[in-house]
Simulated assay, not measured.
Amino acid sequence: MDVLSSRVLLKPSDPEKSTVFYRDTLGLAIYRTFPGGTVFFLGQGFLELVGRGDAGASPDVALWLQVRDLPATIAELRAKGVVPDREPRREPWGLDEAWISDPDGTRIVLVQIPADHPLRTDVRQ
C-alpha cells in the first residue's frame, strides 16, 4: 500500500456547530469545502467534517494535536469559552498533555513535547 494522503473523518451531530468549533474556536484553517463537508488542515494531515452523524463520540477515538505552547493554548481556548476536560500535566511518558472535547464529545488531546523529550532528539549522525 502506498499512502499518498490521509484524513480523519468525523460525522458531527450538528455540522454547523462543529464547523464553528474547529474553525473559530480552535482556529483551524480550511483546506476546502464541498456540499455537506469541510476539510481542515490538521498539522501534517487533515480533519474532514462530513455529513451528519447520530452515534455520537466514542471513548475509543481521540484527536492528538501537538501545539507549541500548551499553557498559552489553554489560556487562548479558555478566553473563547472552552473548559478543559483535564488540565495540563506531565504524563509518565514525558509529554505535557491537556484534554478538551469537541461539541459531540470527541476527545482532543493537546500535546506539547518538552525540549528534553526523546521525540525531540536528533538521531542523525
Rank of each mutant, 00 (worst) to 15 (best):
G45V: 04
Y22S: 03
G81K: 00
L65W: 14
W64H: 10
P92V: 09
V67M: 09
G51A: 09
R89C: 07
G81F: 00
E16H: 07
G36H: 04
D116F: 01
H117M: 06
T121W: 10
T25E: 08
D24T: 12
L110W: 01
G27C: 08
A55C: 11
Q125P: 15
W64L: 10
D96N: 15
V8N: 03
V123N: 10
G37Y: 03
A57C: 10
D69A: 13
P71I: 09
A79F: 01
V67Y: 01
L65E: 05
T19F: 03
V109G: 01
P103G: 12
G53C: 13
L119K: 13
R23V: 05
R23Q: 11
R23K: 13
E97D: 08
L47P: 01
R120A: 01
A72W: 06
Y22L: 09
S5P: 06
A62D: 08
S18P: 10
F34N: 03
L9I: 13
S58W: 13
G36D: 02
P12W: 08
P15K: 08
E48I: 04
W64F: 13
V61C: 06
H117F: 04
S6E: 03
L10Y: 05
I74H: 02
R120H: 13
Y31L: 15
P35Q: 02
L10K: 05
P15Q: 09
L70W: 03
G45C: 08
G105W: 15
Q125M: 11
L110D: 00
T25F: 06
R7M: 10
R107C: 11
A75R: 14
V83M: 11
G56K: 14
L26Y: 07
G56S: 14
R32K: 12
